[in-house]
């Protein structure tokens, strides 16, 4: 005995749908931007704010979904200082080397940090806990010299107190990845 067609349809409609495979973030990012002209940089911002850097596989996938050649992506990523090609440490320590900070001795602060963490500017500690980088200007010049750790600013530092800064970071534990922008809008 066969089930009438209309019943079969009704049963099918009532049955719980199999959950759709979760759409991964890169697809979401690509969908958000691919129809907007010239939006590659914005898509890369979204990607980096989620992952912390621009991994090669993600760049390939994003390029594929947005129909942008990988070479174009790398052309852009390598031009702009803001984009990172390697995974940074958990705590990204940005030492501001803007002019106001420079005048107030930020070079000494940076070299103190390098000694303290035993890495050079642009490197991460072997345990991937800290990443040390120099940045141009964070726009808080009135509070020079300063460093920011995952977006949290430590201001009016003394240039010889780099060890205190590391201690304070350990106490504060700023968020590991900066707030990601809402993809829904």
């Amino acid at each position: 005995m066969s089930i009438p067609a209309e019943v079969a349809t009704a049963v099918k409609a009532a049955a719980p749908k199999a959950p759709a495979a979760p759409v991964d973030e890169i697809t979401l990012i690509a969908n958000k931007w691919k129809n907007k002209r010239g939006s590659l940089i914005m898509a890369l911002h979204d990607l980096q704010s989620r992952v912390g850097y621009v991994p090669r596989e993600s760049a390939m996938k994003l390029g594929h979904l947005m129909d942008v050649p990988l070479a174009r992506i790398y052309e852009v990523v390598t031009f702009y200082n803001y984009f990172k090609l390697e995974a940074p440490g958990k705590y990204v320590i940005s030492v501001c080397l803007g002019t106001a900070c420079h005048i107030k001795g930020s070079a000494e602060l940076l070299s103190g940090m390098e000694k303290e963490l035993n890495i050079k500017e642009g490197q991460s500690t072997p345990d991937k806990e800290y990443h040390l980088q120099a940045v141009r200007c964070l726009g808080c010049c009135g509070l020079a010299p300063l460093v920011s750790v995952n977006g949290k600013v430590y201001a009016k530092l003394k240039t010889n107190e780099s060890h205190h800064v590391i201690e304070r970071i350990q106490i504060d534990k700023p968020m590991a990845v900066a707030d990601a922008e809402d993809l829904a809008d």
Binding site: C137, G139, C140
Partner: peptide, 11 residues
Amino acid sequence: DEGDPGAFMDG
């Protein structure tokens, strides 16, 4: 795009 290091008027 206030890029001058040491300036923060526009921001």
